[in-house]
Amino acid sequence: MKELKIETRNLSFYYGNKLALNSVSFNMYANHVTALIGPSGCGKSTFLRTLNRMNDLIPGTRVDGEILIDGLNIYDKDIDVVNLRKKIGMVFQRSNPFAKSIYDNITYGPKINGIHKKEVLDEIVESSLKKAAIWEEVKDRLDHSALGLSGGQQQRLCIARALSVNPEILLMDEPASALDPISTGKIEELIFELKKTFTIIIVTHNMQQAARVSDYTAFFYMGEMVEYGKTKKIFTTPDKKQTEEYITGRFG
């Protein structure tokens, strides 16, 4: 029942000469949520951003090793980064809706993919907003600026925007770190819903959140993947001392 979706093999990442990820290898499964935890600067966000090659944008970086998605190495020379990113949605730490209307925020992705028919766009807007559980709140003001929404709404709008191009994988970089508990709860509910259709990788600083939403958890420390396994096991009987100390908050 578990379908292998993403596999990393000896993935190392360098900012200039500085080693940020050291030979990370593990598997992520389709329709499951994988949480990446670890202290700041441990490389978990870097790892997340290697999955859709966002790190390519930073000059002076280098990747070693392989990332296989559905058995295909995404760092292969023939891979078109633009098409790759269409398959892998991303939600950022700070909600970053464009300074456009709510409607235009959602249609941006489809439009750059060449969809211009009004009916199709309308449909995408409605279904994306519904999937992100924000449709009811904004359906009457689609022509209003997205910047007028609250923080939590903006973040769900960003999720809807990521879903508008029909990705298979959803990367979330601390999606709830700037939100209050109620908005966070809504996002977590949403993650539960979304994992039926998508493979979700989430970076979080919030232990409880990782415990609540993820099926698998990987603990990163100093650029290395220390421990990886079922979330329940990691949080109750971790194999490594470091993991336990981090989870109980005794080190960081």
């Binding site: 859709n52 990113r85 970053n96 464009f98 992705g109 750059i112 993919n113 960003c158 191009v165």
Partner: peptide, 11 residues
């Protein structure tokens, strides 16, 4: 983050 969001959408 604006450009990042756009690029992540495959623009």
């Amino acid at each position: 983050t604006y450009s990042e969001a756009s690029l992540a959408l495959g623009a």
